[in-house]
Design a protein around this nucleic acid. Structure first.
Length: 292
DNA sequence: CGGCCCCTGACG
DNA sequence: CGTCAGGGGCCG
């Protein structure tokens, strides 16, 4: 469920609270959520470790320990991480509980059980979690319009599906791909190789602008985070198209359409995001009109 | 590549 | 009851 802005919000909210604490115990009630190593080893190896920070890579969260060991976590669709007092109501589907040295608990809950943990030893190469397959962070200085164009420019695949891949640029999911393409006025079904140089540039800028915007909108206090059980995100009031099919486009008032692309529900404005270029647009491009 | 799978819960 | 869900891996 969470995409880059939500995962970043979780990291920013939890890191200051976890930093410096020790793991007193680890309870795993659903061993299958620990992908690597075995749940037993996961438990044993984490006891006594001191947390020195948290990180994020794409939609993966990392908990870093002073020993150099790292816990990697992917929340997938419905996973949530919550720091609670020990006597706090235990949510249904709580699969992993870390007992912390300040008496509180770090709890992982996930109704659908798609979320996964990995534990890497200090210096161990990560060949399990999938982090190694990820492309650039959208805020990496190497992430440029040229990079996107060079990576995708020859693909016939739809631009929406390209954005959902994590191997070129990472962190964009189904909601933000729709939001980004709407803002950039690019139809989600456009083949990647049909985008102009200008559109690649606009798309690159829009990816960074929209993700920054939603990271800002997601900022939350630890109290509100606990209140919302770590799964209540603040971005929804600011979504312009996702979930708004059948409603008016906030820009042109045309009715927003829903379709399925790559098996994923996609919402777009048929007027702002033209699938085919209009005769006028082709003429403008052909004559170089609008340039300079 | 598309299609299916992993799961539970919300909603029509 | 069927369908869908903001993710991703695997299989033919």
């Amino acid at each position: 469920m969470p995409e880059l802005p939500e995962v970043e919000m979780i990291r920013q909210t939890l890191e200051p609270q976890l930093k410096g604490l020790h793991i007193k115990n680890v309870m795993v009630s659903r061993p299958e959520v620990v992908a690597q190593p075995s749940a037993g080893e996961f438990h044993q190896r984490l006891i006594g470790q001191k947390i020195c920070g948290m990180g994020r890579r794409g939609k993966f969260l990392k908990i870093c320990f002073e020993s150099g060991d790292t816990v990697i976590l992917h929340l997938r669709m419905t996973g949530g991480l919550l720091i609670t007092p020990a006597d706090y109501f235990v949510e249904k589907h709580t699969h992993v509980t870390f007992h912390l040295s300040d008496g509180r608990e770090l709890r992982f809950s996930d109704p659908r059980r798609f979320g996964r943990f990995w534990l890497l030893n200090s210096g161990e190469e990560d060949t399990y979690s999938g982090v190694y397959k990820l492309g650039l962070e959208p805020f990496d200085e190497r992430f440029t319009d040229k990079y996107l164009r060079d990576s995708y420019g020859d693909r016939r695949k739809t631009i929406k599906e390209c954005l959902l891949e994590q191997g070129i640029v990472t962190g964009i999911g189904n909601i933000y791909s729709d939001e980004i393409l709407f803002t950039a006025k690019i139809h989600p079904r456009r083949p990647a190789n049909s985008l102009s140089v200008k559109e690649w540039k606009l798309l690159t800028e829009t990816i960074q602008e929209r993700l920054s915007f939603f990271i800002e909108k997601n900022r939350i206090s630890p109290e509100d985070y606990l209140e919302g059980k770590g799964k209540e995100y603040r971005n929804t009031p600011f979504l312009q198209v996702y979930g708004h099919q059948g409603e008016e486009c906030p820009v042109c008032r045309e009715v927003l359409c829903r379709t399925v692309i790559g098996g994923r529900s996609s919402v777009f404005c048929p007027k702002c995001q033209r699938e085919k270029k209009t005769r006028q647009a082709r003429m403008n491009q052909g004559t170089g009109k609008g340039k300079r």
